[in-house]
């Protein structure tokens, strides 16, 4: 079953969702949002895309094996966690610098790690399920 309207909407909607997810990620520290929520929203975008186009198209779209995304997320979060140790502080100490009035710090990096991991995890799980159960093929 091919539905051109649905396909157009979904492929546009993917960008909207990922963009919104990124928006939530970065504003999350001060208003509702954050890495976890953003991650789920971005993944939901890919999920929708996958339901319409199939899992292989999703993998083509993101180009990287989702397992690597997942690992990268964990790595980023872990680096954010241990980076204060370079300065002799206990791990997970929040360190901040203010650039042009916007405070940036390791918790933000940590949040980004969470975001990447959640996206990778959900995409990895649902593409695998779709692939194995021959969903949409």
């Amino acid at each position: 079953m091919k539905n051109i309207v649905l396909e157009r909407i979904v492929s546009l909607f993917l960008y909207v969702m990922v963009g919104f997810a990124l928006f939530l990620l970065f504003r999350g520290h001060s208003r509702p949002g954050g890495g976890f929520i953003g991650g789920i929203i971005a993944a939901a975008g890919f999920l929708l895309y996958g339901i319409v186009f199939g899992s292989e198209k999703v993998l083509e779209k993101i180009k990287v094996d989702p397992r690597y995304i997942l690992g990268t997320g964990l790595l980023v979060a872990f680096l954010a966690a241990i980076s204060p140790m370079m300065l002799g502080k206990p791990p997970l100490t929040g360190m901040w610098i203010t650039l042009a009035g916007i405070p940036l710090g390791t918790p933000l990096l940590f949040d980004i790690g969470v975001f990447i991991l959640v996206v990778g995890m959900i995409v990895s799980i649902f593409t695998n399920i779709m692939d194995v159960l021959k969903w949409n093929s």
Partner: peptide, 28 residues
Amino acid sequence: EGYGRNIVNVILVDFRALDTLGEITVLA
């Protein structure tokens, strides 16, 4: 100290970041 108004998120990524680190490891 956490530079964030969203307490939930500050707890997640700063005050209780160790818990979060554990949780995302479990997720992975």
